[in-house]
């Protein structure tokens, strides 16, 4: 576990990450969500199903990480 002191010294084995490294995962989730929001507008059936899957990604990740945080103190 990385522990960051208020002064800003991180544990030595974790190198600061670049902006791309920080934002690539959120960007992927954001694009999936945007696709999900759009797809259901254009059709029913398959389009709806794709939209459900894509827009579930942020919800499922929130649940997974949130539960892990709540359980793993």
């Amino acid at each position: 576990m990385t522990r960051i002191a208020p002064g800003g010294t991180a544990s030595p084995h974790f190198r600061p990450r670049s902006t791309w490294q920080v934002f690539r995962a959120p960007l992927a989730v954001g694009l999936a969500a945007a696709a999900g929001l759009t797809f259901a507008l254009f059709g029913d059936g398959v389009w709806d199903a794709v939209s459900w899957v894509a827009l579930s990604i942020p919800v499922v990740l929130s649940l997974i990480y949130g539960l892990r945080a709540a359980g793993g103190r």
């Binding site: 576990m1 990385t2 522990r3 960051i4 991180a10 974790f14 600061p16 990450r17 902006t19 920080v22 934002f23 995962a25 959120p26 990740l61 990480y65 949130g66 892990r68 945080a69 709540a70 793993g72 103190r73």
Partner: peptide, 18 residues
Amino acid sequence: LYGPFMRKLAFGTVRGHA
């Protein structure tokens, strides 16, 4: 703000014990 906050944390890290 997410950028500087997550500079030294992996995506999804929740520091639970602190």
